[in-house]
Computed example of a mutant assay.
Amino acid sequence: MLDRDPLMKVLTYLVLIAGVAIIALPVWVTFVASTQTLEQVLAAPMSLLPGDRFLANYAEVLAAGAGNSGAPVARMLGNSLLMAMVIAVGKIAISLLSAFALIYFRFPFKKLAFWMIFVTLMLPVEVRIMPTYEVMSNLGLIDTYTGLTLPLIASATATFLFRQFFMTVPDEMAEAAKIDGAGPMRFFFHILVPLSRTNVAALFVILFVYGWNQYLWPLLVTTQESMYPVVIGIKRMISGGDAATEWHLVMATAMLAMLPPVAVVVLMQKWFVKGLVDSDK
């Protein structure tokens, strides 16, 4: 058996260690740079040992920002967190209700409605970004949290996944709920939503990271620094021309930007894996 071959076991561990090193080394360099002064970062070669500016650098970017971005990183982190949460929760809520309607209600052109939703998979925000921007501009939603999140809270993928899950729920369950006097929304909230919790958890992790990493749409719809998410803030901190980039502060901001999505993945790892591999879904 391959799993009992000592040579294969050693090779497996070597590959895993190499993979971890490739992923972890850039993160370690970023962290080390965030604890040093600008002169230490620009030194050749840069030391790979942490410096003594950890608290000072992080306090500076959280309170005042750096480079071309005058907005505090704490404000940008808050913008990103709000944006990611609204996008994730909005996509899940709309997708649950859409899938519920497609499975448990009869209405004209139901199949056409489903395929129209499914076809939008071929029309991501990047394809329809100019008309979407024009709509947001006409509605006066530039530089607003509504403008940042509203165009991104519908998800054909999540609707399709919930639809497929609802199709596996026995019809007898809906009939029993109807006999007991439960209305459609009571059946939805008290039976379907609890049954979907592992799927919801898995999708929440994916959609939170998706919302946190948004760059192109916030770049177009925001003009005030106070509305920037942290991803745009990092790009603004990198100076152009003759201005010197404060790389130690940029790296500190990058480390702070990693923390929320990493925390979500770590805290919800069990539910995330269960939602992807659970045989009962």
Rank of each mutant, 00 (worst) to 15 (best):
F165R: 06
A174V: 07
I129P: 07
A174W: 12
P131A: 13
T168I: 01
I142L: 03
A156F: 02
N138M: 04
M130P: 05
R186A: 09
P170C: 01
G140V: 08
F187H: 04
S155L: 13
S137C: 15
P131T: 14
E172I: 00
V135M: 13
L139W: 15
I129A: 06
G181I: 02
G140A: 13
L148W: 11
A154D: 03
P151G: 13
P151C: 05
D171R: 06
A158E: 04
G183A: 05
F187Y: 07
F160R: 08
D171T: 05
A176R: 05
D143V: 07
T146C: 15
D180S: 14
I153K: 11
F165P: 09
V127H: 00
G147P: 08
D143E: 00
T157G: 08
M173S: 06
L161K: 02
P131W: 07
Y133E: 04
T144K: 10
I179M: 10
P131Q: 14
Y133T: 07
A176D: 06
R186D: 14
F165Y: 13
M136I: 05
F166T: 02
G183L: 11
R186P: 02
Y145L: 04
R186S: 02
M173G: 07
M185C: 03
Q164H: 09
P170M: 05
L150I: 08
A182P: 02
I153L: 15
E172D: 04
M173L: 11
L148T: 15
L161I: 15
K178A: 11
F160V: 15
L139Q: 01
M185P: 08
M173A: 04
M136S: 01
V169H: 09
P151R: 07
S137N: 08
D171Y: 10
A174P: 08
M130T: 08
F166K: 00
M136V: 00
D143S: 03
T146W: 12
A158Y: 03
G140M: 05
P184A: 04
Y145D: 04
I153S: 10
E175L: 01
I153E: 06
R128L: 15
G183K: 03
Q164I: 03
A156T: 10
S137G: 09
A158Q: 15
G181P: 01
T168Q: 12
L141P: 11
P151L: 04
D143T: 01
M185V: 07
G140Y: 08
F187M: 09
A156I: 00
V127M: 00
R163M: 06
L148R: 08
P131C: 02
N138V: 06
E134Q: 13
P151K: 11
L152W: 07
Y145T: 12
M130Q: 11
R186E: 14
F162I: 12
G147C: 11
N138Q: 14
A154M: 13
